[in-house]
Design a protein around this nucleic acid. Sequence first.
DNA 1: TCTGTTTTGTTGTTTATACAACACATCGGA
DNA 2: TCCGATGTGTTGTATAAACAACAAAACAGA
Lengths: 188, 188
Amino acid sequence: MTQSKTDPRILRTRKLIMDSFIELSGKKEFKDITIKDITTEAMINRATFYYHFEDIYDLLEKVLSEVLLINLNGDSYEKGELNEGTFVSIFSAITNFQTSLSNRCHRGYEDTIARIIREQLEIIFYKMLLKQRPSENKQALNTAAVMLSWGLYGASVEWRRNSRTISPEEFIKPVIPYITHGMKTGLP
Amino acid sequence: MTQSKTDPRILRTRKLIMDSFIELSGKKEFKDITIKDITTEAMINRATFYYHFEDIYDLLEKVLSEVLLINLNGDSYEKGELNEGTFVSIFSAITNFQTSLSNRCHRGYEDTIARIIREQLEIIFYKMLLKQRPSENKQALNTAAVMLSWGLYGASVEWRRNSRTISPEEFIKPVIPYITHGMKTGLP
DNA sequence: TCTGTTTTGTTGTTTATACAACACATCGGA
DNA sequence: TCCGATGTGTTGTATAAACAACAAAACAGA
């Protein structure tokens, strides 16, 4: 798990698995996707799946993490810039991700997926906050990351509740000043 | 080499190598393509190349064989139908292949490539003739295949000599009746 | 010509993947 | 309820791929 990322075989296989999962997510609901489906689509052995991922939720985690990082502007992320573009990118990524998962009405799975999304959001926000303010109280940064992850996830729930009448970008942009510049001003 | 074709790892790796070679053929001349170029593009180890192919000419052979078989209509090939469509497909395939190799003026390589193309054509024609006439004298069928391969390759040389003023299909179609129905009639 | 550089093939060892077999869990229908 | 079928997760072994190191050939330039 340490230097394993450099072995081309590992990179290839993980990409095959992740891409197959994303592909299948567009075709059927999450609850109907089996490990066998994924490995068949990826043309790899089922045992190989378990070499890389604990289970399908572990895969979901890592796919989400990938999706979030890929959609983020590399520069902004490296610098920990929590600006408008960053929030828009992250919000778009999670709404797209949820839409492609097409998990509409399955409570049991939705809870797990929601938790995974919040966890990954929290990880990213914490890393970026840490880069932005390395000397700050870590406990405070962690709590801030937790609140951001719950808040942004909640916004995505609200966006879906509104039947996707406007784009994710339009939906999230107006509120970003409140996040970046505080509730008192709500202005950049 | 016997059942090796069924191992997914082998199929994957060979496809990666072949696709990379085809990709590189479009960018630079054959003589400038090194094994290292191919394996780098394919993201596989150089030693793995030699596990599958003897050298770059062996690869060329197998790529050409693939290209020819893929472009052939599966049905016609299975039945050994040497009809107009078959000849057009094969002729288009080899002209496209040569164009993508972009081997314009390098005599030494051109001879080797020409030999490989003729050999692969001969193999395909012999197989199809054998299916069409299983009871025929094998020596005669072999010689017929040799003549067809030389003839069709010669036609491709002539087509290039004419600076590709017409499409390969237009170029070869008028002469096909002479092949399929003989020189005496030249009519279907 | 000589010399340093690149490319070609090869070999031995380590690591990842394929595959088959297994126990167990889950689930839908008789 | 039971039962067959399907999915999950694990294990042992065979094989392919990665990697590093090597000698020899091909090559470019002084």
